[in-house]
Design a protein around this nucleic acid. Structure first.
Lengths: 112, 112
DNA sequence: AATATTCGTTTCGTAGCCGTATTATTGCAC
DNA sequence: GTGCAATAATACGGCTACGAAACGAATATT
C-alpha cells in the first residue's frame, strides 16, 4: 500500500512532532506513547508485567505511566478478578478519542 | 503520493515509537526531536531565537536542547561572524547520520 | 499450614527539564 | 562615546521521571 521515501517519511514525522510541540501538547513521553498505542492498537488483556516486557522497561515505569495517564483519563486500571495480583489496563472513552485524533493528525499531515 | 488510512498511520507511529523505546534509544524529548528535524530538514540559517519562535517555546528551551544534543554531537553551535550576538546551529556528521537512520526506520516500518 | 513465588506498588536518592527572571555581550542610533 | 535594543546564556526553585531495592498482597508449591 505505502512506499514511503526516506525524505518523505522524515518530513511527515517532523510535521507531526512540530504540530504537537507548537500547540504545547507534548504532555506524553515516548514511553507513554508506546504504552498508550500498544493498549489501543493491540488486543488485550494488557498487564503491567506484560507491557514492561513488551517495551523492555522496568515495571515501575509502567506503574508511573499508568498513574500519569490515568489522571488524564487516557487509561484505567482494573484488578483481574481471576488472579487478583494482576492489574488489567483498560481503555477509556477519552483515550480512544485521543488516539483517534492522533491518527487523524498523522493522516492529515501525510497528504500534502 | 501517499494516502494514509487512520489505522495504518497509527500502527506505523506505534511501530516506530516502540522500536525506539525497546532499544532504549529514547534519549530525545519531543522538543529536541522538533529542533533536530527542523535543522536537518529545512534550509538555514537556524538561530536560537528563530527556532524558539518556530517551535513556540522560550529561548532557554533551545539553549538547553543545544547543550544536550551538542554533547551527543547531533548539532553544533557557531557564532555568526556578521552579527556576533547570533548563534548559528550547525549540522554535524553524526547528526545527519542519526536523522537518516530515523528516516530509514520509518520507511522500513511503513512497507508491510 | 508453612514456605516460596509472582505481581504491582512504593521508597529512596539522583538526574533532567521546565518557566521566570537576570546577566553578559554585541550591535545600533544619536 | 553614551544610552538603548537585541541576542544567547545562566541562576533559581520546582516538578517529573528514572533505576534499584524493598515491600505488601495474592497465589502456588510442598
Amino acid at each position: 500500500m505505502v512506499k514511503l521515501e526516506n525524505r518523505t517519511a522524515l518530513t511527515l514525522w517532523q510535521q507531526v512532532v512540530l504540530d504537537q510541540v507548537t500547540k504545547g501538547a507534548h504532555d506524553l513521553s515516548m514511553r507513554q506513547f508506546a504504552i498508550l498505542f500498544s493498549v489501543y492498537l493491540e488486543p488485550g488483556p494488557h498487564t503491567v508485567r506484560g507491557l514492561a516486557q513488551k517495551l523492555n522497561v522496568t515495571k515501575p515505569v509502567i506503574t508511573r505511566a499508568l498513574d500519569a495517564m490515568g489522571q488524564l483519563d487516557l487509561l484505567a486500571r482494573k484488578r483481574d478478578v481471576d488472579d487478583r495480583r494482576n492489574v488489567l489496563v483498560q481503555r477509556t472513552v477519552a483515550g480512544a478519542l485521543y488516539v483517534e485524533n492522533y491518527g487523524d493528525l498523522i493522516s492529515r499531515k501525510a497528504d500534502r
